[in-house]
């Protein structure tokens, strides 16, 4: 898991966050804050109607293996085309504007009763180049109508974990999936070293002779 070689790379960007940065994104009223509270032990306000979360809440999430990540809960949005102030907050957090670094992975909350509606935002997150993990929420509500996580995972091209945040079912699976989605280098590595390489790829050689960054690189400034 930990690669010592990830440390000591050139400081290409600052400030460098010391922990992996995660965000929870999703449509309004799909259970993002309930999941956030369950994962971090926070008590952010939850209600059964949309529009409760209007700014990003922050918490800490312990991943399998003891790694600690910063987790931010975002206001709900239907797309990355922001129209309202809280959608703008969600968009800025997803693409790394507004002071915070771009997330190392995005947990996309998908309401198991409304999967089709959520796929638009998920696709946009994937097109941004984010590492996505889908948390399929409200599985208990959808009951028999809930999609099969494995089939959905194959269709969407990212890991899908069914969770019921109220009863904490599936949370450990979700933590493990997040850990797999994160780049394998240790926290504290430079943002560029973390984001320019796919997870598990060897570290490029010294800068000039190194292989070109992948097409998803956004670090070419």
């Amino acid at each position: 898991m930990t690669q010592a070689s990830c440390h000591g790379g050139p400081a290409l960007q600052d400030p460098v966050p010391s922990r992996p940065q995660l965000v929870i994104a999703g449509n309004p009223n799909v259970g993002k804050t309930t999941l956030f509270n369950a994962l971090t032990g926070s008590s952010a306000k939850v209600s059964n109607y949309p529009g409760i979360t209007v700014e990003a809440a922050c918490g800490k999430l312990t991943l399998p293996g003891g790694r600690i990540a910063d987790l931010r809960d975002l206001p709900g949005t239907y797309s990355i085309n922001a129209r309202s102030a809280e959608e703008m907050i969600a968009l800025d957090a997803l693409i790394g504007l507004g002071g915070a670094p771009a997330p190392d992975a995005v947990i996309v909350c998908v309401d198991a009763t409304q999967v089709a509606r959520a796929t638009y935002l998920l696709l946009q997150c994937q097109e941004l180049g984010a590492r996505c993990v889908v948390a399929l929420t409200m599985v208990d509500e959808a009951a028999a109508a809930a999609p099969d996580p494995r089939a959905l995972s194959a269709a969407l091209g990212c890991e899908v974990v069914a969770v019921t945040a109220r009863t904490r079912a599936g949370l450990d699976d979700l933590r493990a999936a997040i850990d797999r989605a994160l780049p394998s280098c240790a926290p504290g590595s430079t943002r560029c070293a973390r984001r320019c390489r796919p997870a598990g790829a060897p570290r490029p050689a010294t800068a000039p002779s190194g292989p070109p960054p992948t097409t998803r690189s956004r670090c070419g400034r």
């Binding site: 239907y78 797309s79 085309n81 089709a116 509606r117 638009y120």
Partner: peptide, 11 residues
């Protein structure tokens, strides 16, 4: 345009 886009992206 904003209204159309809103409805279209909501499905």
């Amino acid at each position: 345009r904003a209204f159309r886009r809103r409805l279209l992206e909501m499905g």
